[in-house]
Write a protein that binds this DNA or RNA. Sequence first.
DNA 1: CTTTTTGCAAATTCTTTGCAGCCCA
DNA 2: TGGGCTGCAAAGAATTTGCAAAAAG
Lengths: 161, 161
Amino acid sequence: MPHAAADVDRLKSRWQKYLRRQNLKTTQQRELIVAEFFQAEGHVSIEELLERVRRRSAKVGYATVYRTLKLLTESGLATAQQFGDGQTRFEVAGEAENHHDHLICLQCGLILEFENPEIEKLQDQVAADLGGFKVVRHKLELYGLCPKAMGQKGGYCPNES
Amino acid sequence: MPHAAADVDRLKSRWQKYLRRQNLKTTQQRELIVAEFFQAEGHVSIEELLERVRRRSAKVGYATVYRTLKLLTESGLATAQQFGDGQTRFEVAGEAENHHDHLICLQCGLILEFENPEIEKLQDQVAADLGGFKVVRHKLELYGLCPKAMGQKGGYCPNES
DNA sequence: CTTTTTGCAAATTCTTTGCAGCCCA
DNA sequence: TGGGCTGCAAAGAATTTGCAAAAAG
């Protein structure tokens, strides 16, 4: 599901504020790109984002998307992630904080998301044991091999069509 | 410090076994590359590894290093990592296995290390449930607040002297 | 001998940059 | 108007691939 309209508005407001503070200009392209980015779910690649943007307006170049995502990252509104599939993916900041964790296949690049309350409970416990810490957020990434990648006879790769 | 000779031997033996099982050939280049790789400490880039290899024998090509590291990764003896610096780095698999996780205080910046077998067991289980994945390595970072940072009366910060 | 592997260079893929013209403030 | 933007295409950087020659089993 996409982000709630209220969240998107709040993000856009932060973006505007950032532009003003940095003496940057509001342009049609930037507005389009950030609007699509804020509405996007999960981790978006430059290519995916450009595709969405072009659905709404034909003429936006790769370079502008790169440049805008760089600004978003610098402003703290986006975070860049490397999953080892050869391209950088971006996520709306804040989404990473409460959301899902990742399972990444080292071979085929497939990325799955998961949540596990038991693990999170243990995390809290570990932190408490280490002197009374309180966990605010966490980042958990599992890197592994899907059955196919391990060379199992008949192993399947969830990524295959 | 480099890996102990005994470890290197054990790794080499696993490598040989892998080659045989996959009907691959043992070549001078491959032997050199894996020998250097197993002795290397930490996360090595292709370029660094090639440099080391060439110190011992002049004529090994980039492509061969790439291809050999791919084999090592598929065999489970190496893991690929992205640190966002634009190049892939590789680590000897065993190194990641006794890798510790981090607990970071958002306020005072203290970083503690921990290990928790129960969490790791759950990670493996999650991966298995998601279609039969095998976890090769993981990254877990907890961001939180130490007691002092939370403003607890008399709360102590382990970081203070 | 047959099959794999290698090294080279060319090809790919992802990302950044230079620059002339366009647009916002 | 003037300094930032943009799109394009060219430049870069990292990795992969095609192919003939070389090496392994």
